[in-house]
Simulated scan of single mutants.
Amino acid sequence: MTGKYLVINCDDFGQSPAMNAAIMHLLEEGLVSSATIMAPAPAFREAAEWCRKREQPNIGLHLTLTSEFEALRFPSLTGGASLHDDSGHMYRTVEEFERGADTADVMRELTAQYEAVRASGVQITHADNHMGSLYGMATGRSHIPHVLRWCARRSLPFRLFRKVDPADPLLGPMPGVERAAAKASALAGVLGVALPDYLLSHPFEKRDGETYESFKQMLIDKLYRLPFGICETYIHPGVDDPWMRRAIPHWEKRVWEFRLMMDDDFRYAIRDAGVTVVDYRFIRKHGRESRLRAGARLAASALRR
């Protein structure tokens, strides 16, 4: 694919009223591609009802197995014993989840979250994963093969990636990430699961000395360096309100992400850099790999063990 295509997804829809307000505004104004909704989170009902009334066409499922904020803890939908810490809530960290969660409990929970969103009247366009808990990035214990089969049965594209941008601050430095991505994306191809080519990240905490202007310039620079193919980046926008200031660490970065999507400089840079903003309907159409080619890649990766 010779063009530069970008999905801008809002994660954490349904996490809190502050997140909902920001994401609803961005979706209403067409300033982002999509959002992914958290079925176990406290503000899920508000988000789902808004989507249902508007027949919102670009809502995915944010598969949620962790509950990271001290002021915003919640349990799973299924009550699986291996999905909770001693407080009765989902684990706070990815490492705790990877060490404690039983695969059967995980898959029951993913299905319950899918059914809860469907029952609310929201049509699900794709799936991704809160905090990357399913990827095995903390201990190497990955649930990705099971999740890809789960997505294939539901014809859901999934947030994964075929290639790694060396400049990506999260994925680029990870040892072995390219080999892991190649194997996982080959399995997705065999199963017929559509994927983006690249996943682009940025630090979600406010760094020392960082300002809104420096943050904006960093993301604008990324637009001009965007690789050819289908890329996805994700944000966690929130409005500035007293509750979020008290409850959410690095809340200011979320307010910046909300502000950035409405910033004329950012909108101009998208056009000037020749980037086409698309959603997961585009990935569903163009993000599948030939099963024959994917099978050959999967076999080759098995032989390299």
Rank of each mutant, 00 (worst) to 15 (best):
86 D>C: 07
86 D>N: 10
86 D>T: 06
87 S>M: 04
87 S>A: 11
87 S>I: 03
89 H>R: 14
89 H>F: 13
90 M>C: 09
90 M>N: 12
91 Y>H: 15
92 R>I: 08
92 R>V: 08
93 T>A: 11
93 T>M: 08
94 V>K: 03
94 V>W: 01
95 E>F: 00
96 E>N: 08
97 F>L: 15
97 F>H: 14
97 F>D: 12
98 E>H: 04
98 E>S: 05
98 E>N: 10
98 E>R: 03
99 R>N: 13
99 R>S: 11
99 R>P: 13
101 A>G: 05
101 A>W: 08
102 D>T: 11
103 T>D: 13
103 T>C: 06
103 T>Y: 07
103 T>R: 15
103 T>E: 15
104 A>H: 08
104 A>Q: 10
106 V>E: 00
106 V>C: 08
106 V>I: 04
107 M>N: 02
107 M>V: 04
108 R>Q: 05
108 R>L: 04
109 E>N: 07
110 L>M: 02
110 L>G: 13
110 L>C: 14
110 L>I: 02
111 T>M: 09
111 T>C: 08
112 A>E: 00
112 A>W: 03
113 Q>W: 01
113 Q>V: 01
113 Q>A: 03
114 Y>D: 07
114 Y>C: 09
114 Y>R: 04
115 E>S: 04
115 E>P: 12
116 A>N: 11
116 A>Y: 02
116 A>D: 05
117 V>Y: 00
117 V>G: 01
118 R>V: 05
118 R>N: 06
119 A>K: 03
120 S>N: 07
120 S>K: 04
121 G>K: 05
121 G>D: 03
121 G>E: 03
